[in-house]
């Protein structure tokens, strides 16, 4: 199986500001890929480019071996995405929304109807027929957005914080569904700030910091520190760096990669420096 997502020198500028700089991603087909980065690292900008919502300033994007710019309509059919802000149509019921999405992705009426019912049941939304989407709770909206992202059986799925606001029971079944999808060859590109989730689900990780891809590889490679030289120890964080590289958690690895400035100085301020916590 070839790469499902591949970018070369992907760059995005906004005026004179370069938000994304020469990113070279490579996600193999069937991988559960975790895309990490601190707030403002431009993860969303990259997802928008990978899903064809935002055009890159330069560089190329290939999804499932095809150039995204030349065959975007065909590729969009094979992509599932929970868009920014979920982009639900608030004045529809969940059933109406899923039926609309199914038809837009070219499913016939019967298949759309069948999958709609299955997904509503699966997401525990079947009893909410009287409610409009706008009256749903955040978690319910998230589940609906997820259902809409998978209704057409995508081959590549982009998920931005998919479990945020979702209850533990639903999150468990969703995780199982996503793992089953990868077992069926679906590639999942997931961003989340909850590193425990990423560590549990993902087999491969990419880390972006200030618009640059600073690390990429399998979880084991990342833990072993094979992808980035260890930075000099930071004051107050000796605990993180003293441990053996192979036993480190993803959180420790992530902090090591993005928690330090390029020149080796500490980026964030220590809590003791806050005047009201001294």
């Amino acid at each position: 199986m070839g790469p499902a997502i591949e970018t070369a020198a992907l760059t995005r500028r906004f005026g004179d500001f370069t938000a994304v700089r020469e990113v070279a991603l490579r996600v193999e087909g069937g991988q559960f890929y975790g895309f990490l980065g601190p707030n403002g690292a431009c993860k969303l900008t990259i997802i928008k480019m990978l899903t064809g919502v935002l055009a890159p300033s330069s560089g190329s994007i290939r999804i499932l071996g095809q150039d995204l710019t030349t065959s975007s309509a065909e590729l969009k059919r094979q992509i599932g995405v929970v868009p920014e802000g979920m982009a639900l149509f608030g004045r529809l019921t969940a059933r109406e929304y899923l039926r609309f999405v199914g038809r837009m992705y070219g499913l016939d009426r019967d298949t759309t109807g069948q999958r709609t019912e299955e997904l509503l049941e699966f997401m525990n939304l079947a009893g909410e027929d009287k409610k409009l989407v706008t009256d749903f709770s955040h978690g319910m909206q998230k589940k609906l957005a997820l259902a809409a992202a998978v209704i057409h059986g995508p081959r590549v799925l982009f998920l931005d914080e998919p479990f945020e606001g979702v209850d533990a029971v639903a999150a468990g079944t969703l995780k199982a569904m996503l793992q089953r999808m990868t077992a069926h060859g679906v590639t999942i590109f997931l961003t989340s700030h909850v590193l425990e989730i990423v560590e549990r689900l993902c087999t491969h990780i990419g880390v972006i910091h200030r618009g640059e891809l600073v690390a990429q590889g399998s979880l084991e490679e990342l833990r072993a520190g094979a992808l980035k030289p260890s930075p000099p120890p930071r004051p107050g964080e000796e605990l993180l760096t003293r441990e053996a590289p192979g036993s480190r958690t993803l959180e420790q690895v992530f902090l090591e990669i993005v928690g330090t400035e390029r020149d080796g100085s500490t980026g964030a301020r220590a809590p003791e420096e806050l005047s009201w916590l001294r």
């Binding site: 059919r77 094979q78 992705y105 070219g106 059986g153 569904m177 089953r180």
Partner: peptide, 24 residues
């Protein structure tokens, strides 16, 4: 558990389906 099947994605989506969906 419901299994999500992947589509073959060979057929082009009929215009009537998408236009009808938007009208609906």
């Amino acid at each position: 558990m419901v299994e999500i099947e992947t589509e073959p994605h060979r057929r082009t989506i009929p215009a009537s389906a998408q236009l009808g969906a938007v009208a609906w």
